[in-house]
Every structure is written in structure tokens, then in C-alpha cells.
Design a protein around this nucleic acid. Sequence first.
DNA 1: TATGAATGAGCCTTCATTCAT
DNA 2: GATGAATGAAGGCTCATTCAT
Lengths: 193, 193, 193, 193
Amino acid sequence: MSKKEAIVHAAIQVFREKGIEKTTVSHIVKAAGIAQGTFYLYFPSKLALMPVIAEEMVEKTMEIVKENVQDEASFEEKLEQFVDAIFVVARDYNEIQALIYAGLASTEHLKEWETVYDPFYKWLSELLKEAEQADIMRKTMHIERTAKLVIGLVESAAEQVYLYDNTDETEVKQQKAEVLSFVCHALGIHPSN
Amino acid sequence: MSKKEAIVHAAIQVFREKGIEKTTVSHIVKAAGIAQGTFYLYFPSKLALMPVIAEEMVEKTMEIVKENVQDEASFEEKLEQFVDAIFVVARDYNEIQALIYAGLASTEHLKEWETVYDPFYKWLSELLKEAEQADIMRKTMHIERTAKLVIGLVESAAEQVYLYDNTDETEVKQQKAEVLSFVCHALGIHPSN
Amino acid sequence: MSKKEAIVHAAIQVFREKGIEKTTVSHIVKAAGIAQGTFYLYFPSKLALMPVIAEEMVEKTMEIVKENVQDEASFEEKLEQFVDAIFVVARDYNEIQALIYAGLASTEHLKEWETVYDPFYKWLSELLKEAEQADIMRKTMHIERTAKLVIGLVESAAEQVYLYDNTDETEVKQQKAEVLSFVCHALGIHPSN
Amino acid sequence: MSKKEAIVHAAIQVFREKGIEKTTVSHIVKAAGIAQGTFYLYFPSKLALMPVIAEEMVEKTMEIVKENVQDEASFEEKLEQFVDAIFVVARDYNEIQALIYAGLASTEHLKEWETVYDPFYKWLSELLKEAEQADIMRKTMHIERTAKLVIGLVESAAEQVYLYDNTDETEVKQQKAEVLSFVCHALGIHPSN
DNA sequence: TATGAATGAGCCTTCATTCAT
DNA sequence: GATGAATGAAGGCTCATTCAT
């Protein structure tokens, strides 16, 4: 593993433990097992880490999503699997999600952020397009826009349960069911027969 | 105006200008026109401001929402007005929204945050309940949960346009229309004839 | 009790609890049950308290000494009772003793300090004078000087056991016996028959 | 000279000039010619300096004592030389002595202080042991305890003259003679013929 | 006399960043 | 490239002191 990767992974880990405001470069380099000065060979500042971490997180998220969503499943099943995946990410990485929002608020790297979610949006757009073509969904939507809405909605739903250490399993299940039903109605899904 | 109010208002103003991380207590007291020590008579730290600011923001939001949504309008119209209101808030206060998320990430005041949105959730729940009883909406939802989903969805949609200084009016209009249509389908709205 | 006395007593109490460096005027006025500003009606500064506290302590010490030392006792017994008394004071007020030394080091009230111990020195001088006249003690000493030496010695001996939370009773007993024997030999005590 | 030593020496110097309470870390680093932050690489706080300074002082004291006390001298002469040495230290470093007492009062490093004086106690104990074995001193004493008493006594005697800028030489001489005589009687010294 | 909210100078401490090795 | 001791600017916070009531 390169020093750079070591820094990024150490940073993610420390941020999860200590929260964003209390994390220092010292903590990060210590966790990464490198010297203080080495950090600056790879990143000009602490804030420059944010876009990289965000990218890493989106990659991780897409990985988990792709693992969960099975090719041979029906569209509705895929949506359910998609919701499951987002909830898993939220549960395991909710501090990082918050971190990314906080980063959004406190950097001038905003332009870079815009592109980070793009592959994720694209992936869901593809899924919706297929459904549209298969005629199992209403056709009165703007696909890309809708993809963004769905992702925003499901992430927000997942945060609502997990942000407050709410790990009550039945609660989580109900929330998942509710949001899935919400999305299905929103998309106007109907059997394709 | 009491010193405490002066602090809160100055803080909101400075946070909007400088962002959360770069704002210092010194900046706040300077903007509020009070002495450094006075701040600590009212708040133990910078982060302790967050819950108060959040409350203020939710109040402001509800004010705007109530102004926009007209009693005599139909349910669908009300939803549209509701969406308009949320977009207005997002446009005028998007830094504060981000601030609230960031605050979420960096405080241990999480418990206090939970209750802040409650009046807002309640308000929308009432609206939905009426629609349900009037039989112009599908009845297979959990009202409170759905209220939270709708608010999360619309806010997220609004942020998507405004967070990146996207003030292109037609873009905004399309986003509003899309999310309204999304919500209407999700709620299963049908004419009450 | 006058406000002034209230301040002095509160100060002593707070100093014992919190130590000298961590005590603030706020703590003192709170303990005294008076307003912040009232303090400055009676003392120009925090350090101005020191001489008064020292006086108070010396008075307390003399009180305890006089309670312990019985008029009808023999000189040697009186010395033993004297040692007992000093050890009691050291046990119950060792923080204050240290406080007085610290005050010594940090004020410009040094001149005032000189006189504080005077009544105590005088008292012991009297005792020694009587013994000298009764011919039960060597006569080759300067009485006042010796009184100071004895007080310095016994206080130092007492501090040595109590300063380190050493409350082992047999240890204390042995230290007392040793210092008493030391003093008796130093004074050249011999039966008066 | 290492930075750490520079800090300690600067601290001693500043403490002697300004007293313990009025000395700040800023003063110390300025005197040491180092950066503010460097201080905290070596000491967590101002008070953490105390044990180190105390050790330094005890070392200094023992140095002077060993210089003064001559091997070939008689026991009584050695005691006189010992008293002389302690008075020299008190004269040249009386602020530091007070500083050490003050430090005692204001730190939680008490446990560390206990051991600081140990080498000094040991040294005098050895001297007393030899005298006892040479049969020129009463044998009814606990040697270690007595060593502590003697050191406490002589230091207290020296402080009594020097703490108030009393540099009157005859006064000093008389005080020395008195305390020497006091100690000799206390130890029950008799010619070893 | 008594109050206590307000003050603001200045201390402690942190921590991103540098640079000689 | 890698190091880590050193830096010093800057923020958080305290607390003795004041003053209008």
C-alpha cells in the first residue's frame, strides 16, 4: 500500500473515531504510521483530503450496492435490494456521511464534489432506463433527475433511523418497507406482463 | 435585544459568511458588538450554539411554509406551495442547512437535535391525515413516517439545485415540478370527486 | 457575622478544597454567599487576603496550643502537649500551612508576614523563660531565637508526616516521640529537684 | 544545551525574579529563547516543572554541602560546616526554597516530591551513623528520622534570617551559632576522648 | 452598602506547516 | 522521498475588576 493510500485510509478511520472537528493531522499520520512531514508530500492541507475521502466513500457505496443488487432479479426486487444496500452503508458509515456533508460546508472544493456522486447517479439512471423501456414504470419522468431524487430520498430515510443510534431492527425494517413502497408508488411501477 | 439574542443572530450571520469551521468565537462577538467574555456567560462553547440556531432555522422554515400554504387550496395545490416554500428556504439559507448538517456531525448534542424537527414533522403529518380522511390519497402509508420521508426528499431536492450556486431559474422550475410529481405519485393522489 | 469575616472564612474553606492556584474570587464570593462586587469593598485584591488568613491561622493554632497545654503540667509534659498540638494543627490544616508558604512566595506583603508569628513566638518564649528561671533547662541559650527554632523544628517535623497523606498512627507517634526527645536534649532539660 | 535544559534554567531564573504565581509560560519561553509551542513538547504545564526544579535545587544543595564539609574534620566541625552550607544555599536561593514550598502546595505531583530529598537525607544519615559508631553522640535516636529533623531545623533557621532580606552579618552569625548549639545538644555530642 | 452583568487583557494551549538532516 | 523537532500564529477561555443600578 502506498503512503498516499495509507494516509487516506488512516484519515477515514480516525474521522470515524474522533469526528471531524477533533481530528488533527497528527492523529492521521500516527494512525498511518508515517512522519508528520510526509503528509505534506501528498496533500497540501487537511481539507484537501475531503474530496478523496468522498470518492472513496462513493466507490465503497457502489461496491456494496452492486453486490446487493442481483442481475437476474425483477426491477422491484432490485429496488428493494438497492434500499437494503443504502441502509447498510448508512449503518456502517453514517459518521462518514455526516463528514462529507460537513466537508461540503467547509471547503472550497465544492466544484470537485459535484462530480463525485456522478457515477452513482449514472448507475441508478441506467436501472431506471431499463425499467422504462421494459414498460414497467410510468414514463412521465426525467430519468436523471429522478435518479437523484431517489438516492437523496433513500439516503435521507436511512440517516433518519441510524443517525440517532437507532439500531432497533424492527424499526429499521419498517422504515425500509415504507421508503420502498414510497419509491415504488412514486415511480408508478406496474407488473410488466 | 438581549445579549443572548445578539449572539445568536450574529452567529448565524457570520456562519453564513465564513462557513462553520472558519468561524471563531472572536468573529461572533465582534459581529455581535459584545466583549469576548460575555459570550461565555451564555454559551459554554461555539458548538453549544448549534441547537439554538437549528431551532431558529426550523421556526423560520415553518413560518415561510405557513405563509405559502393557503388554507383554501386543494391538497395538491398545498403540496405545490409546500415545495415552493422549501425551495425558498433552501435558496435563502442553504449555508445554514449545511451548517446544521455539519453541526450534527460535530456535536454531542445529537439528542437535542432530534426534537428540533418535530414541530415540522407534526405539521405535515396533519396535512397528510386530512388528505387521507378526505380520501384523496392512498391509505396504505404510515403517516408520520411518510411525513419525514417527504420532508427529507424535498429538502434534498432543493439542496441539489442550490448547493452549487445553481440559480438558473428554469432548472429550478423543472426540479420543483419533478419532485412535486414524484411526491404526488408516491402519495397516490387521486381527484376527490 | 460581618461580610468581611464571611469572606475570610469562605476563602479558607475554598483554599482547602481547591488549593491556592485554582481558587478564584468567584469561588470565594459564591461560598461566602455575597455578590462579586462586594468582595472589593473589603479587599483590594485576592492577595490581600493572605495576611488576614495567616493571622486567622496563627490564632487558631495558638488556641489549639493553649487548649492542649495545661498550666499545672511539668515543663516536659508541657512540651509534649505542645508537640501534640502542633501535630493536630498540621493534620487538620496542612493545606493552609502550605498556602501560607505559597502566599509568602507570591505577595509583596512580606513585611506584614513578619509580625504574624510574633504572638506565637512570644508565647513559647514565656514558657522557656519560666523553665530557665526554674532552673530545669540549660541557660546558655538565646530564648527568643530558641523559641523560633523550636517552632520551626516541630512544624517541619509535623509536615514531614502529614504532607504526604501519611496517616499511619504508629508512624505519627514515633515521629512525635522523636521530635520531643530531640527538643528535650536540645534544651538540656534536667529534673528540677 | 538541550531545549529541555534551557527551559528549566530559564524557569528557575524567571521564578526567582517574578515569583511563582506571576510567572507565565510566555515569560519562560521568552527567557529560554524558544518558541511557545516548544515548551509543550517537554512539559505538559507550568507546574510540571516543579519536580525537575526541585531535583536541580537538591542537587545544587548537596554539591555545596559536599564542598563545605571536609572529610578530615571532626564531627562537630562537620556539623558547623554543614550549617554554613545550608545558610549559603538559603542566602543565594531563598526564593527557590519558597518556590518549592509553593509548588508543593499547588501540584498533585506530591508523590514525586517525596523522593527528591532522599539523597540528602541519606547523606546526613551516613554522617550520623559514623558519629554514633564512634561513640561521640547519644545512641537513643532513630538515625533516619533524626537526619530529617536536623535538615528541617537548619533549613527553617536559615529561612528565618534570609526570607526577609535580613543580611545583617552579625545577626546571621548569631543565628548560625544558636542553631549549631541547638543541634549539638539535641544529638548529645560529647568529646570522643 | 450591595449587587452581578459586563468587560477585555492576557494566559494557556493547539496544531498546521516548515526545514534541516 | 522521508523524517520529526521546532515553530508561532491564532483561538479558546478565564477571571480579576468595574460600574450602573
